[in-house]
Amino acid sequence: MNVFLWILQGLLAVLFVMAGTLKTIQAKEKLASKMGWVDNVSASTVRSIGAAEVLGGLGLILPAATGIATWLTPLAAAALAVVMILAAVTHYRRGEYPAIIFNVILALLCAVVAWGRFGPWAL
């Protein structure tokens, strides 16, 4: 199970760091063509969400890999699960139902990492 959690953490970290970097460095107008929800929020909110995703993605790997403040790894996973639930709510309000499925799957995967690292397979 520990190996499974590491693989899951790695995949989620790559996904969140890439998505967060995109939201952090690209202009809001450029993102609007791919992500319609950015029209409903300010540019600083888009950048804040991106920064949260980048930091959460790094938090899935770095504390556990370095052995420093390992309690941050399950905390990052739980925080990313909350971010994905909030994203699902946003997509629901906009009527973007296929995106909700993706958000819920990511939230569940983050919850599995949080559960595993808080509990039986804590680092």
Results as ranks from 00 to 15, higher is better:
Ala69Ser: 06
Cys110Met: 11
Arg47Pro: 01
Leu31Glu: 12
Leu62Lys: 00
Leu106Thr: 04
Thr66Pro: 14
His91Arg: 11
Arg93Phe: 08
Leu75Gly: 03
Val46Gly: 05
Thr24Arg: 08
Asn40Ser: 09
Ala51Pro: 00
Trp37Pro: 08
Ser33Lys: 12
Leu11Gln: 01
Ile100Ala: 06
Ala99Trp: 12
Leu108Asn: 02
Thr66Arg: 01
Gly59Arg: 06
Leu109Trp: 07
Ile105His: 06
Thr21His: 04
Ser48Met: 10
Ala77Glu: 07
Thr24Trp: 15
Leu22Lys: 11
Ile49Met: 13
Leu55Gln: 04
Arg94Gln: 15
Gly20Ser: 07
Ala76His: 08
Lys30Ser: 15
Lys30Asn: 15
Gly10Lys: 05
Leu12Ile: 00
Gln26Trp: 11
Val14Trp: 06
Ile25Ser: 00
Ala114His: 03
Gly56Met: 04
Gly119Val: 08
Asp39Gly: 09
Leu106Cys: 14
Thr73Lys: 04
Lys30Thr: 14
Gly119Asp: 11
Ala32Ile: 01
Gln26Asn: 09
Ala52Met: 11
Thr73Pro: 12
Val54Ala: 07
Leu15Ser: 09
Ala111Trp: 07
Val112His: 09
Gln26Asp: 10
Ala88Met: 05
Thr21Tyr: 14
Ala99Pro: 03
Met35Gln: 13
Trp121Asp: 14
Thr21Cys: 10
Met1Ile: 11
Ala81Ile: 03
Val113Trp: 08
Leu15His: 08
Ala19Ser: 14
Ile68Gly: 01
Met18Gly: 03
Pro74Ile: 12
Thr21Trp: 15
Gly57Leu: 01
Lys28Glu: 14
Arg47Asp: 00
Gly36Thr: 07
Leu80His: 08
Gly67Leu: 00
Tyr97Ser: 04
Leu62Met: 13
Trp121Cys: 07
Gly57Phe: 01
Glu29Leu: 09
Met1Arg: 05
Thr73Trp: 14
Arg117Met: 07
Val41Glu: 14
Leu22Ile: 07
Ile68Tyr: 12
Phe102Leu: 10
Leu58Thr: 00
Pro63Met: 04
Leu55Phe: 15
Thr45Glu: 13
Ile100Thr: 02
Thr90Ile: 06
Val17Ser: 01
Leu123Ser: 13
Ala65Asp: 03
Arg93Trp: 04
Thr90Gly: 10
Gly119Ser: 10
Gly50Phe: 05
Ala64Phe: 06
Gly95Thr: 03
Ile101Met: 10
Gly67Gln: 00
